Amino acid sequence: MLPRICNTCRSYITASGNEVKGLIKSPLSVPGISGRYAQALYSAGYKKKNLEILEKDFEEINLLMAEVPQIKIIINDKSFKKDDKTIILRKILEKGKFDKLICNLFELLVENNRLSELESIMKSFSRIMSAHRKEVMCTVTTASPLNEKDKKKLTENLKKNLKSGEKLILQTVINSDIIGGLIVEMSDKRLDMSIATRIKEIANSLRTLI
């Protein structure tokens, strides 16, 4: 029988809503199978107090897959027998000295034919960890780079929308297609104050007058 993480994952996969007992609730609900695996891993990691280690391990696994394409081939190749795939991946993970929970997760994914969900699980786990740190992601799109003064002022205004204890993670994107102004995307909200959108609105208004 596989270790605790496997039972934790199975609980998440077979249960829904508040049916899961004895598990730490994730600070972010992520839909889908990959979300359930990520939330199960979060619960197990929280109990072991090694969430940061798991997050770091996933970052290293991402780098490893980018540097060694053969690992992705092994993960995605369905012609590999489960036992062979488990042995190969176990050796890779043990050599990299990855956390036991990560190793157990890989074994469970092989057992359940879910290795194809790995990258999605890692992304889901990253989102959960961001929520765990009370980080609020905000993307601001402008036609040209903001100067430091404008960026500082914008950041101060955006922080006014945060709840106590939350941290703003600001990402700026340059897109000349918006012509001017800016587009702010924060959590599940979107505020489009671009000149391009304003021109479209004016054009649509003019069409109704003709």
Rank of each mutant, 00 (worst) to 15 (best):
N62L: 13
S194L: 03
G32S: 06
I102K: 06
K97N: 11
L93E: 00
R36A: 01
G165V: 02
N113K: 10
K78N: 12
S43E: 03
I73L: 13
E119S: 13
R114D: 00
Y42M: 04
S11D: 14
A38N: 06
L118Q: 09
L182F: 08
K81V: 05
L105N: 08
T208F: 10
K85T: 00
S120M: 11
P69N: 03
G165K: 06
I183F: 01
F125S: 05
N161C: 11
F125N: 05
K95T: 11
K21H: 15
S26C: 04
D177S: 11
I199G: 05
E59C: 15
K49S: 15
V140S: 07
L162M: 11
I88C: 02
N147C: 06
E201A: 12
D84E: 13
R190E: 05
G180D: 08
E166M: 04
I169H: 10
S176A: 11
N204R: 14
T14Y: 08
S187N: 15
K163D: 06
I210S: 14
K82T: 01
N157G: 07
M137P: 09
C103V: 11
A38H: 03
R36G: 01
I195M: 07
V20K: 05
F106I: 02
E185Q: 12
E111A: 14
D188P: 04
L108D: 00
